[in-house]
Design a binder for these strands. Structure first.
Lengths: 219, 219
DNA sequence: AACAGGACCGCACAAGCGTGCTATAACGGT
DNA sequence: ACCGTTATAGCACGCTTGTGCGGTCCTGTT
């Protein structure tokens, strides 16, 4: 009769919209139902509790990001570009993904208080760290760990992966908090700048692609 | 009769504790009152609305951090150490400050949705950026901007301030989300590593103070 | 044609919320 | 000793919340 999974995806989308507009505490069953164009009872046919609904919505974000990363993994670009694209896949480069990151941050903060989200948080950390290790492996032409959680063969390289991880999280936080100050080009340029640091600082610090050299007035 | 400001500070402390334990949506008037050891009516003598209470509690965090930074500003340490100490003043180095950062993150995320917190957020960004500029000025022995909001004399230096800012935010986010993975020494070592990058990479990447290099397996 | 069950609806209820309000102590100045 | 002010208390009201539950269509199978 009705594609169950598709309907659930639509509802999850409504959850994201509502959280983006009203915060996670504003994601009430009534509001989500209204935003999804169904009734409270209808909503409860797909999610039997508010908690289950929010949990599923949080999980779906991870799936989204993973899919983007996976797509870049099999790219045919050269190593340096592939490293950039991998990291950029995790950054909020447009409004759509800014909203996504916003909702993710909301869940991350809530996970500090809601233990049922702890696994999600820990898993996200491991996943992000893995992508950073892949990026380091690419720029330094070193064998990257095959399994998620595996480390790079050198402590020093691990430190660079940590470096990238911090930058990714910092950029995500800033880009969602101050969207006007961080254009997609800004983010991309910053990522490439840091990757050139990882590569060994024997490249030029930036390749003239940096749009920040034309300073925009703060809104 | 009673020191009004002191009492307010005690209540604000209770707000932080409650938010740390139950999240910002769990900071109900009843719960805060109970945690502060007073009644609902008593609480309302110091804060006439829940919104005012939370707003004041958020503001107080900024005051806390500013005080720590200010203390380091007039330190007698040499330039490089002073830069480190300035940045470290904004990081969650112990449980106390981890809780503080946690609450701050909660308010930051809420500010995405609550416009009455927008000024606070924007002000925090400007303040943090200023400290980063001071740090860059110290390590590069360049005149730092005297006024908050003033920029460094070189676009390239501005980029390094931006670099530090992203690292500070990234570290704050990670240290509060995954406290077990980031000891105070880890954070300090990371800050110093980045400062040596800012200094021009003509220093050793680390000075052997990095606790993570300890368990190095034989290659 | 009959019908079982999926899809959806919306009322009802208890719980919890912020806040307006009045009541009651305790204190300081006179 | 008196009294206004201050500090604290807690009840009451209207509102919102999540969810249990009974109801109504609609559709695919028999």
């Amino acid at each position: 009769m009705v594609d169950h999974d598709k309907r659930r995806a639509e509802i999850v989308r409504a959850v994201w919209d509502v959280i983006g507009r009203h915060g996670i505490e504003g994601a009430t069953v009534r509001r989500v139902a209204e935003h999804a164009g169904i009734s409270m009872g209808g909503l409860r046919h797909y999610f039997e509790s508010q908690h289950g609904l929010l949990h599923f919505a949080a999980l779906a974000i991870g799936t989204n990001v993973s899919a983007r990363v996976e797509a870049q993994l099999h790219s045919t670009a050269d190593a340096a570009d592939r490293a950039s694209l991998l990291l950029e896949a995790m950054l909020p480069l447009d409004d759509e993904r800014r909203g996504e990151a916003d909702v993710w941050l909301a869940f991350l903060v809530r996970s500090h208080v809601d233990d049922t989200l702890r696994d999600l948080r820990s898993q996200a950390w491991t996943g992000t760290r893995h992508v950073c290790r892949l990026a380091v492996g690419l720029v330094r032409d070193v064998a990257a760990p095959e399994t998620v959680g595996g480390e790079l063969p050198d402590v020093h390289l691990e430190q660079w992966a940590e470096h990238l991880h911090v930058v990714i999280d910092g950029l995500t936080l800033q880009a969602t908090s101050y969207p006007d100050r961080f254009s997609a080009d800004d983010l991309r340029a910053t990522v490439r700048r840091h990757l050139s640091l990882v590569a060994g600082a024997n490249l030029a610090p930036d390749r003239g692609r940096d749009s920040r050299t034309a300073p925009r007035p703060a809104p």
